[in-house]
Amino acid sequence: MTNKSSTLYTVILVLSLFLFLIKGFQYAVLGSYIPLVLALVICMLFYLNRKKKKALNILIKIWALLIIIWSLLRLLIGTADRFGKELMENHLQENLGVTGSLISLLFLVVGFYLFNKKRRQQWLN
């Protein structure tokens, strides 16, 4: 792995965790604490295992999978909603409309990018 692409991998990994943390704080302010707790647990796991290659490998795999599932779920719900009109609240539709779907797609790419075995192994080594 070149230096450049290694940095990019780090940036994307850290950014994805950071965005989840932001989401956690955003909800904690509103009195919903579970997202923050989850985000902190995941960040903590990454931090504690930052020097253990094997564990880190598994962690990235799980994290990437979670991102992929998250994106797919959002895309699925958003698409289902466009066909079944009364399926759900306006609020969800607003979130999973065109902009929301673009965000989901972006994270889907991020998920696959992080999950990619070759890239992951190279980055770890």
Partner: peptide
């Protein structure tokens, strides 16, 4: 919380 994790408030 499940919906919190998926979308914005």
């Amino acid at each position: 919380v499940f919906i919190d994790l998926l979308v914005s408030p």
